[in-house]
C-alpha cells in the first residue's frame, strides 16, 4: 500500500496509562503516540489488554492513571471533553452492536441527526453515500437481523463513518465472522485506509496488518512489549514473546 502522507502532527497521545480491574492490572504504563493519518495495528494474546487500551481512547473504559489526549482534548472527568472525543472517534466492535430495532439506514442516520444536527434529508443522503462505500446500498431498508455477519459489520463501519470521524477504532472487527465473510470486511477497511483515515485496529489478521500498518504494536500482560514498523516487526522481532506469538499465529 502506498505510504500516503502521515503528517507529523500527533493526534492521539497516550502517556503512562494504567488501569486495574479490581486487583488485576490490565494496563501497565502504556505509552503510545499516533500521528494524523497513521495506521496502527495492535495484536497480542487474549487478555493482554489490547481491547481495553483502545476502549480507553473513546472512554468506553476509564483509565485510572496517566494521560490520554485525543486531538487536543484530554480525556478526564469533563463530560464535554468525552463527548467531543466520541464525536471524532468512530468505533467498530467485534459484535457489531447495531441497533436491531432500526433499519440499516436509520442506524446510520441516528448519530448525524441527533448529535451533529443534520436534517433527515441530509443525513439520509450522506448515509447512502457511505453505504455505497461499504458496498451495501441495496440493504438500506432492511433490519440488521436480516443481514449476514459480514454485511452487518460493514453497516457498523458505515454507521461510524457517517459521524465523519477523524479517527477510527476497530476492536477485533473480524473475530466474530465466518471465514468467508472476513475478506469483504477487510476489503472495506483497506479502502478506508487508502483514504488516509487514522486507524487503530486490534486484530489477528496479520495479512491485513502487513498491508496497511505503519506501526505494529504487540501487547502482553498489559504492557506494550514491542512497537515497530511492520517490516521489522514481521521479519525481525526483537522480543521473545513477539517471536513466539508470530510463529504461532503465522504457522497456519
Amino acid at each position: 500500500m502506498p505510504d500516503n502522507a502521515i503528517s507529523t502532527e500527533t493526534i492521539i497521545q497516550i502517556e503512562r496509562v494504567s488501569k486495574w480491574f479490581g486487583d488485576f492490572q490490565v494496563l501497565q504504563d502504556i505509552d503510545l503516540t499516533v500521528r494524523h493519518g497513521e495506521r496502527v495495528v495492535v495484536c497480542g494474546p487474549s487478555g493482554s489488554g489490547k481491547s481495553t487500551l483502545i476502549r480507553c481512547i473513546n472512554r468506553l473504559e476509564e483509565h485510572q492513571s496517566g494521560r490520554i489526549v485525543v486531538d487536543g482534548n484530554e480525556l478526564d472527568y469533563n463530560t464535554k471533553h468525552i463527548h467531543m472525543v466520541r464525536c471524532e472517534v468512530g468505533m467498530v466492535f467485534q459484535q457489531f452492536n447495531l441497533f436491531p430495532h432500526l433499519t440499516v439506514l436509520e442506524n446510520c442516520t441516528l448519530g448525524p441527526m441527533r448529535v451533529r444536527g443534520l436534517t433527515k434529508k441530509e443525513a439520509k443522503s450522506q448515509a447512502m453515500e457511505y453505504l455505497e462505500r461499504v458496498r451495501i446500498p441495496e440493504q438500506a431498508h432492511k433490519h440488521p437481523s436480516a443481514l449476514s455477519g459480514g454485511q452487518q459489520q460493514r453497516v457498523a463501519i458505515a454507521r461510524s463513518l457517517c459521524m465523519e470521524p477523524r479517527i477510527m477504532l476497530f476492536d477485533e472487527p473480524t473475530s466474530a465472522l465466518d471465514p468467508e465473510m472476513i475478506k469483504e470486511v477487510l476489503d472495506v477497511m483497506i479502502d478506508l485506509a487508502e483514504t488516509g483515515m487514522t486507524m487503530i485496529c486490534v486484530t489477528h489478521e496479520m495479512g491485513f496488518a502487513r498491508t496497511v500498518a505503519h506501526q505494529m504494536v504487540f501487547m502482553d500482560e498489559g504492557r506494550i512489549v514491542e512497537n515497530a514498523a511492520p517490516e521489522q516487526f514481521f521479519s525481525n522481532p526483537k522480543n521473545e514473546r513477539t517471536k513466539l506469538f508470530l510463529s504461532q499465529i503465522l504457522s497456519h
Binding site: L60, R86, F99, L110, V115
Partner: peptide
C-alpha cells in the same frame, strides 16, 4: 451492554441513548 456502547461510540448522550436506543 453493547447497545449502549454502540450508541456512546457515535456520541449519543445518556438521555439520547435511553430515548433512541
Amino acid at each position: 451492554k453493547g447497545q449502549v456502547e454502540g450508541g456512546m461510540s457515535i456520541g449519543l448522550s445518556r438521555i439520547q441513548l435511553m430515548r433512541y436506543v
